[in-house]
C-alpha cells in the first residue's frame, strides 16, 4: 500500500504541475516579476493546492496514524533560524533566476530539453554538497 500511495501522490503532483502550467518557466518568472508582465497563475495554483491539504491536516487531528500505520509528522518547533531563512532566500534567488523549483524540474524532465537536464544536474550537485554548506552556515554563526 505504501508504494501505491507514493505512486498516486507522485502522479497527482506531476499531473497538477503539468496542467497548471507550472513547468513553464515563463509563468513562474511572470509571477515573480511584479515589475514586468505580471502573471497571477501561480497564486491560483498555490491556493488550489492549499485547500485539499488543509482538509488533510484537519483529518490528521481526528486520526491516530496514517492508513499504513505510520504516525503523522509532528509539528516543528516554531523557531525561525538562520538555516530556514538563509536557505529559503538562496532558493528564491535560484528559483527566480531559472524559473524552476524541484518539483517542476523533475516533472518537466521528459520535455524540458537539455536546459532542464543541466538545471537538474546542478540542483542534484547542490543537494549533495548542502550538508557541508549547512555546517559552514552554522560555524559562521558560532564565530560571530
Amino acid at each position: 500500500m505504501r508504494l501505491i500511495f507514493s505512486a498516486l501522490a507522485g502522479a497527482l503532483f506531476g499531473a497538477g504541475l503539468f496542467v497548471s502550467g507550472m513547468t513553464d518557466t515563463r509563468k513562474v518568472q511572470g509571477w515573480l516579476d511584479i515589475f514586468g508582465n505580471w502573471d497571477p497563475t501561480l497564486a491560483f495554483v498555490m491556493g488550489g493546492a492549499i485547500l485539499p491539504m488543509a482538509l488533510a491536516w484537519w483529518v490528521t487531528t481526528r486520526r491516530s496514524a496514517s492508513l499504513i500505520g505510520v504516525p503523522f509528522p509532528p509539528r516543528a518547533e516554531p523557531v525561525l533560524d538562520r538555516r530556514l531563512i538563509g536557505g529559503s532566500v538562496l532558493f528564491g534567488l535560484g528559483w527566480g533566476l531559472a524559473g524552476l523549483c524541484p518539483g517542476p524540474a523533475i516533472a518537466s524532465l521528459s520535455y524540458g530539453g537539455t536546459g532542464g537536464l543541466v538545471f537538474l544536474a546542478a540542483m542534484l550537485a547542490g543537494m549533495a554538497v548542502s550538508p557541508v554548506m549547512a555546517r559552514l552556515l552554522d560555524s559562521s554563526r558560532a564565530a560571530a
Binding site: 498516486l8 501522490a9 497527482l12 497538477g16 504541475l17 496542467v19 491536516w57 490528521t60 496514517s66
Partner: peptide, 19 residues
C-alpha cells in the same frame, strides 16, 4: 492553475493520510 493546484494538493493529501 486552480485545477492543477487542486490536483497537487490532492497528491499531498494522499501522501500525508496514506503514508
Amino acid at each position: 492553475g486552480l485545477v492543477g493546484g487542486l490536483m497537487i494538493g490532492a497528491g499531498g493529501a494522499v501522501y500525508l493520510l496514506g503514508n
